[in-house]
Design a protein around this nucleic acid. Structure first.
Lengths: 148, 148
DNA sequence: AAAAATAGTTGTATTTTACAATTATATCTG
DNA sequence: CAGATATAATTGTAAAATACAACTATTTTT
């Protein structure tokens, strides 16, 4: 099996495309990165700027500016931490939560549709395989280790 | 199994990171997109601008400028087509071929390392699963259909 | 209490992106 | 065959994304 890179290349590209298309909700034109930011804020409870920037492997200065636009769009709220006044805690606004949820649903709908082309056994195998792959990647020393 | 989006989110992010890191060869600082362009030119024989731009789902104007920088870096050559003088045919230069091959090798090395954390059965299952997934995505009507 | 470290912002410059308009060639249609 | 239309690619322009360096405001270390 020597076409590993080929199949991963295709996979990567397809996800890239999916990312490009699937991130606008109603009147909000959300960029892929912004969508990832909303997703992460939603997942982590009351994260700091650093935390999200780090989990997305983004430069903190770039991240700071992205947060500024998300705040202008009233999707994110930023409050200074009580314990450490240097730290800013991030939250989704109601609107932000709505947008995040909507994107989540449309992504899930897409995945459902993709999996509808498989039988139950294949579905199961593929999902477990991806989990295996995620675990293997997290064990890798070469790249991308600090996630989760 | 209701955490589909979660595991795909992680997968996407890991590949995103991998992409960011893994594209410089010697003195060449290749961006992920440029790496994808080199990869596609290498794979298709004597493609036109349009062909590559389309397979990467890139805007042709953006693509045109990326090609300009790749030509400046002497990684890509552009020759007008004989049959249709509007069309430009793309080729890798020797250097470009070298860079593409080197990136390919380092990606493969990375994948080998990742798969080294699995037993033979798992390896096989995961690879076949990804192929299944690719096929299912190509059948999807929602997104990303025009690739391959 | 001074020095060093940390969280986040702002100045600035580069790169990426893409819409609109343009040039050059090819194809279609009457 | 000639004018109209379509297509491939480039350039004008402007917006957004990115990141290095320098900065402010706190906190931690010594």
């Amino acid at each position: 099996m020597e076409n590993k890179r080929e199949i991963f290349h295709i996979l990567t590209r397809r996800f890239g495309l999916l990312n490009k298309n699937c991130c606008s909700v109603g009147s909000f034109e959300i960029s892929p990165i912004q969508s990832h930011i909303l997703y992460e804020i939603d997942k982590q409870q009351t994260p700091s700027m650093q935390q999200i920037a780090e989990s997305l492997a983004m430069d903190i200065t770039t991240f700071s500016r992205q947060i500024q636009t998300l705040i202008k769009l009233e999707l994110v709220k930023k409050t200074p931490s009580e314990q450490d006044k240097r730290v800013s805690i991030l939250n989704l606004t109601t609107q932000g939560k709505f947008v995040a949820t909507t994107i989540d649903e449309s992504m899930n709908a897409y995945l459902e549709e993709v999996f509808s082309h498989m039988n139950d056994f294949e579905k199961d195998t593929v999902l477990r395989s991806i989990q295996l792959l995620n675990e293997a990647m997290s064990k890798s020393t070469v790249c991308c280790t600090p996630i989760y």
